Computed example of a mutant assay.
Amino acid sequence: MRLADRYESFQSLAAREIEGVHYRIHVAARSSPVVVVAPHGGLIEPGTSEVAAAIAADRFSLYCFESLTMRARGDGLHITSTRFDEPRALRLIEASDVAIGVHGRKNGEDEASVWVGGLHETLRDAICDALLQSGFRAKTVGEGHRLAGRDPANICNRGRRREGVQIEMPKALRIKFAADAAHRHAFADAVRAALSDELAGVR
């Protein structure tokens, strides 16, 4: 069971934490209908910012919220995706057609598969297929994972189309990515290819 967040909103977090000391925010607004978002980067869900940046490359917009300080369990800077309301994130997402949320999860009973969710079912399935074709293990909600990302309030679903994609990577895979940049970039390339095809109207 996931412990309750210490903070229920960014306003409550910002009242006690100092930007540049306890957390940092990275925003790269590009001329693109897609934004890649890592709302739990840095020490919250390690490796997610790096993967998000690799997916965005120099083509898609990017937003990362990163914790800079190690916290005791249950005392972190995690704000759940359905309540994540940092103003710079919302401005960038709401100015984009589609948001791709990049997250980390515990290994649990499945330490190999990327769980793909979100309300943009066509793009969700295309990303899942692209990962499978690139040699990664991936599955969608219909294949038995519980992180569906289907709440309209989820940050991935708050772009102009009101539907996006949520990518949940297990801890074991994120550790591999940290040790092997080529492996991480192969993952990012697969996701970006699916996004590019969607933008081109192929899918």
Rank of each mutant, 00 (worst) to 15 (best):
E50T: 12
V36W: 02
E50C: 01
V36T: 02
E45A: 05
I55Y: 12
A57I: 00
I44Y: 02
A56R: 05
V34N: 01
G42Q: 08
P46M: 00
L43G: 02
V36I: 15
T48K: 10
A38I: 09
S32I: 08
G41I: 03
G42K: 07
I55M: 11
A38K: 04
D58N: 14
I55A: 08
G47L: 03
A56Q: 05
G42R: 06
L43Y: 14
A38C: 06
I44S: 04
P33M: 13
P39D: 01
V51D: 04
P39T: 10
E45R: 11
V34T: 11
A54F: 08
H40L: 05
H40Q: 02
S61A: 14
R59T: 14
A56N: 08
F65M: 10
A57E: 15
V37E: 05
A52P: 08
A54S: 15
A53C: 07
E50H: 09
L43V: 13
H40F: 04
G47S: 07
V35D: 03
V34D: 02
G42C: 06
A56E: 12
G41L: 03
H40G: 02
T48S: 11
S32W: 12
E50Y: 00
T48F: 12
C64H: 13
V51G: 09
F60S: 00
S61K: 10
A54M: 07
A54V: 11
V37P: 03
G42F: 06
S32K: 04
A57M: 09
F65L: 09
V36G: 02
G42M: 10
A38G: 04
V51I: 15
G42Y: 09
L62A: 05
E45N: 08
A52N: 12
V37S: 01
E45M: 05
